[in-house]
Design a protein around this nucleic acid. Structure first.
Lengths: 264, 264
DNA sequence: ACAGCGCAATAACTTGGGTTATGATCATTA
DNA sequence: TAATGATCATAACCCAAGTTATTGCGCTGT
């Protein structure tokens, strides 16, 4: 049994972060983010120069957030949405026992709570997995954007379909793959996604997640996650030290995972 | 290892069904379907009388389809979408080994390939799991419908969010629940979904699936699926004979699965 | 009436992965 | 500098679930 993290404990951090004001641009690492969201959407449907500047304007308000901070609680609705600006966050569900399942990793450029923009409460919680910078998007600004920028609206549509496809891929991953295969598939996916926002190159990227964070996404125990990573290392597929991952044999890794990038 | 079902074998049935013409309404069991789709959408957002008749008009063309027939192949795009009219179908992905994972059950009123309506190819295959009646919806008719019937457009939005939430629930189900718990959760979900289209009452519904079909949705082997069902029977939670399921202790079943219906 | 088939049931055996526990390393903070 | 807490690594043990195989029932087609 993994240690039980009481929800109360986690929520206690919220007031702290709520006291921190939203920064106006330019944020310290703003250039990188403009890049992340714009690059992501651009890959789905080419954006115009106006589209790009509109995206930059969309994310004026950002805020630094520590690790393991609840961004959105389950069943909570809001008049704004959040976009990951920098760092890793994740959707998750928790059982009464305290055990949790990560449903999706949110990386820079990812929209946290689409439902909020349509006025629906969320069926899961969203929490930062590393130190993050989060952008706040008022519903009005979002609606205005998709109204006046068909190119962005189109790209957002595709992004949503890709998100849905990723969810299906995760079901298959947990359902019919072994531990090593699951891990291999996840790493292939992350390489692809991080690559598309310019945060991976040459098979290398920063992975600010603990083995427990990976285990919770793959439906494994953290002990077995460790075993699985040892196997991938031993077989010369990856090199993972500290928070930096190098994929040494991308072809073999994809083969092992039967990874098909087309869903992204 | 489950027996490998070559894809070729399955596809051989397609030409057969393609020779069968699309029937014009009224289809033999049409009243039931109008009921299924309309009831489903009505639960998400109240429909007007005009909305209802528009829905009936939408599904003029239907076709009976046998069991284990591929409705949509992976990577295939089309100018029309399919809606399940009667029976059970399912989305699935298959590995090279032949093992497959069912990603979602499609019951009457469910849209098979939303992507097709937006012009995107599918990342998985769709196959009937029982004898079905399928409705064909041309893209133009669909677009026209959501254009002129805001109530339906709204309900379809919500239906899509519910589908996404169901996908997330399945990830959690496979990831952090034991075999019995997974089965319990799935049965609770089916009771809820079938109930909302008037095909379950008093904890009873027809379940035209084999134990292997259930196993493939839950990431279990068919042998273990059998064990799990025996356990649920022995504990007096369910009675499953032939293709008819009775949930004898709904409260205990929900408790066991930690089932929360709010995501639907 | 019989053969053939799909499906459920169940036994026997194996294994992947969970659980618990213990050190080692490293960063933080007192 | 020492104490504390995370994280990674590994060993030992165990069980839930996979695998393989056999039986029996109830269809369906001939």
């Amino acid at each position: 049994m993994e240690p039980i993290i009481p929800v109360i404990e986690l929520n206690r951090e919220r007031p702290d972060t709520d006291r921190i004001p939203w920064h106006r641009a330019p944020a310290p690492d703003g250039s990188m983010f403009g890049c992340a969201l714009a690059r992501k959407l651009d890959a789905f449907g080419p954006l115009t120069e106006q589209d790009r500047s509109a995206l930059t304007g969309l994310t004026v308000y950002t805020r630094p957030v520590g690790r393991h901070v609840v961004l959105v609680e389950q069943d909570c609705a809001a008049d704004h949405a959040l976009i990951v600006f920098a760092g890793f966050a994740g959707r998750h569900k928790r059982r009464a026992s305290g055990r949790r399942q990560i449903l999706a990793y949110l990386i820079p450029g990812d929209l946290c709570d689409r439902g909020a923009l349509h006025g629906y409460p969320l069926d899961h919680a969203i929490e930062t997995l590393s130190h993050c910078r989060i952008a706040r998007v008022p519903r009005a600004a979002y609606l205005d954007l998709i109204e006046n920028h068909p190119g962005i609206a189109f790209a957002l549509q595709r992004a949503r379909l890709a998100e849905e496809a990723t969810g299906r891929e995760w079901i298959a991953n947990i359902g019919i793959r072994s531990g090593v295969e699951r891990a291999a598939h996840l790493l292939c996916e992350l390489l692809e996604r991080l690559g598309s926002i310019g945060q991976a190159s040459d098979g290398r990227f920063d992975l600010p997640l603990t083995q427990a964070d990976l285990a919770e996404a793959l439906g494994l125990s953290s002990v077995h996650m460790n075993r699985v990573l040892q196997t991938l290392r031993r077989d010369g597929m990856i090199a993972l030290q500290g928070r930096h991952l190098r994929i040494l044999a991308p072809r073999r890794l994809r083969q092992l995972a039967e990874f098909e990038a087309s869903y992204l």
